[in-house]
Computed example of a mutant assay.
Amino acid sequence: MLDGHVEAAQARGDGYFSDFGSALRYWRTRRGYSQLRLAVDGGVSQRHLSFLESGRAQPSRDLVLKLGIVLDVPLRQRNAMLLAAGFAPAYQERNLSDPELSSVMQALDFMLRQQAPFPALVVDRLWNLVMFNEPAAGFMKWLLGLPLDAAIPRDGSINVLRLMLDPDGLRPRFVNWQAVCADSLLWIQREAMADGPGSEATALLAELSAFPGMQAAGQVADGHLPNLDRRALPFLPLTIVHEGVELNLFTTITTLGTPHDVTVHELRLESFFPADKATADWFRQRFGAAT
């Protein structure tokens, strides 16, 4: 049974580390833990922890899970650590159409509808679009010049970051595109660092970084610091100009707390809010009847 899990994980690109010691050392370093601190918090001896990282000792399944919790390792990577240690994954990864996720989907659909007349959408960890409300669909069609009856797929085939950062996509609509691109790169950079080398997130980061003009945005991301000027807005505005209309928005990201499923753990609800009255009025007039 374990061989099947390993083969499936390798096919998906989940096996980022060839052995448990490398995975443990990677996450301990990423979290800024010394071996002594992790040993104390994990309830093991520093000597045993050193042996685990060097490959001189093998962990139990319970210890892998415990260290993953202490280091706050994402569920997908906890499964990868288990696989590297020779154990089957502990956390399921269901499809969103799975009946067991129906209550989660209903809750997300409720939140999407409550956000109207303003846009809201649900993406996975790589920012592939899986759900959205009617204002988000209408807003996307307007920005892309699509007919009103055009279908927006919900199967994850649209990558929101790729659509935003591509010069042939929505990027020309953003007045402050460098700042928007920098923030977007930070999200996928975090995923790439969490996933480790050879991951889908790393490949997506490389693809997005290769877009024309992204080097300048990347420099903004590398030196990303908040504007502490008292007159500055307390959020990054998305300033959009299209067909003579200027809209000022900001977004919030919501995640589901304490999930025990990889898919649910990686879902994000992005809600768009008007940053001024003129923008609020435009959305109310255009999508006020949307539900």
Rank of each mutant, 00 (worst) to 15 (best):
M1C: 04
L2Q: 06
V6L: 13
E7Y: 02
E7I: 06
R12D: 15
G13F: 10
D14E: 14
F17R: 01
S18T: 09
D19F: 04
F20V: 02
S22G: 03
A23V: 01
L24G: 06
R25D: 00
R31M: 12
G32D: 10
S34Y: 00
Q35R: 15
Q35V: 02
R37C: 00
R37N: 04
D41V: 05
S45N: 04
Q46R: 14
Q46V: 14
R47N: 09
R47A: 07
F51M: 11
L52K: 01
S54C: 04
S54E: 06
R56D: 05
R56E: 05
V70W: 07
V73M: 03
L75N: 04
Q77K: 03
Q77S: 11
N79F: 01
A80Q: 05
M81I: 00
A84L: 00
F87Y: 15
A88H: 08
R94Q: 09
N95A: 10
E100F: 04
L101P: 09
S103T: 11
A107S: 15
L108W: 11
R113F: 08
Q114G: 11
F118N: 05
V122M: 12
V122T: 08
V123C: 13
D124P: 07
W127A: 15
N128C: 12
L129D: 10
F132P: 05
E134P: 04
A136G: 08
A137V: 02
F139W: 13
F139G: 04
W142F: 05
W142H: 04
P147D: 08
L148W: 00
D149Q: 08
A151W: 01
A151N: 01
R162N: 11
D166K: 10
P167I: 03
D168T: 11
D168E: 11
L170Y: 10
L170W: 08
P172T: 11
F174A: 01
F174W: 09
F174K: 01
V175W: 04
N176L: 06
W177D: 09
V180R: 07
V180C: 11
A182N: 03
L186T: 13
G196N: 06
E200R: 13
L204Y: 15
A206P: 02
E207I: 07
L208Q: 12
L208V: 12
F211C: 01
P212G: 07
P212T: 09
D222F: 09
D229A: 15
R230G: 08
R231S: 15
A232L: 11
P234T: 03
F235N: 00
T239D: 03
T239P: 00
T239F: 00
E243A: 15
G244P: 13
G244C: 10
G244V: 08
V245E: 14
V245M: 12
L247R: 11
L247G: 10
L249E: 08
L249W: 13
T255S: 13
T255I: 09
L256G: 10
T258M: 07
T258R: 02
P259S: 04
E266G: 08
E266R: 10
L267A: 13
L267Q: 11
S271H: 06
S271Y: 03
F273Q: 12
F273N: 12
P274A: 15
D276Y: 05
A278T: 13
T279G: 12
G288P: 03
A289Q: 04
